[in-house]
Design a protein around this nucleic acid. Structure first.
Lengths: 118, 118
DNA sequence: GTTAGTAGTATACAAAAGGTTAGTAGTAAC
DNA sequence: GTTACTACTAACCTTTTGTATACTACTAAC
C-alpha cells in the first residue's frame, strides 16, 4: 500500500542528524520570518518589527544577534546623528532559499487545503 | 552588489503568512524529527522514542497527538494482548517531502561548512 | 514644550515548552 | 520473584520564550 521508496535506518539517522543541525540554527518561531523580512530589503530595526507581526523588540533584538552570530545577517551601523543601523542578509543566508521556498509553497498549499476542508 | 531578485512587500507578506502557517503545524523541536523517523517505517511508540534521540515519552506522546490531529499520522491499534500500537504516515505527510529534503540537504551542507570553518 | 521617531536595553513577570520521575496493567523471560 | 517489555499518563520542575513597561539619548516636526 506504500509506494514510498524504502528508507534505511542509516539514511534515517543521517536525516535526523542533518535536520537536527538545521533546526539548531534556524529553528524557533521567529528566525525564518526575520530572514524572509530581510529578503524583501535591507531593513532597519523598527521596520523589521513592523514587518514581522507580533515580534517584540526584546525578542527581535536577540534573534538578530543569533542570526548575526550564525552568519546569516550583517549589522551595518551608519554613524550619523541619529545613529542608523541596517541589517543585511549575507550570501550564506541565500543558501536557505530552497528551504524557504519549499516551506512557503507547502504553507500556501496547506492553507488552501484547510480552506477547502471546511 | 546584490543579485537577488527584488521581492515586493506583497510577496514578502505572502511568504510570511505561508511560512507562519507552515510553522504553526510543523514547527517546534520534534515534529519534523518524528515524521522523519516514521518515514523509515511504521513505528511503534518505543521504537520512535529510541530513534528520535532525546525525546521523552511525555513529549513524544503529545507530539504524536498533534501530528494525528493535523492529519500527518494514523494511529493503528492492534487489539491483542499486549496491545500493540502502530503509527503510520498518511499520504498528506508525503507532501512534506520537499520541505524535509530541502532541510536535510541544507543541514548536511551546513555541518560540512562548520567543519571546514574550524 | 509636547509628541514622535531613531535603536535598542533593563527589569520583571507570565506563559509555553520541555524534562524527570514514577506509576499503571498486563506478558513473558530468567 | 525479579527484571524487562508494551504504551502510555500524571505530577512536578526547569528552561525557554515571550510580554509589558519603562528608560536612554538625540533629532525633528507641530
Amino acid at each position: 500500500m506504500q509506494l514510498k521508496t524504502p528508507v534505511t535506518a542509516q539514511e534515517c539517522k543521517g536525516s535526523l542528524t542533518a535536520i537536527g543541525d538545521a533546526l539548531y540554527v534556524i529553528g524557533g518561531k521567529w528566525k525564518l520570518r526575520v530572514i524572509v523580512a530581510l529578503r524583501e530589503d535591507n531593513k532597519r530595526f523598527n521596520e523589521i518589527q513592523r514587518t514581522v507581526e507580533g515580534i517584540s523588540a526584546r525578542v527581535l533584538s536577540s534573534e538578530l544577534k543569533e542570526l548575526e552570530m550564525n552568519g546569516f545577517v550583517k549589522r551595518i551601523v551608519h554613524p550619523q546623528t541619529p545613529v542608523i543601523v541596517e541589517y543585511e542578509l549575507t550570501e550564506y543566508a541565500d543558501t536557505l532559499d530552497e528551504v524557504l521556498d519549499a516551506l512557503k509553497s507547502w504553507g500556501t498549499m496547506h492553507r488552501e487545503k484547510l480552506k477547502s476542508d471546511r
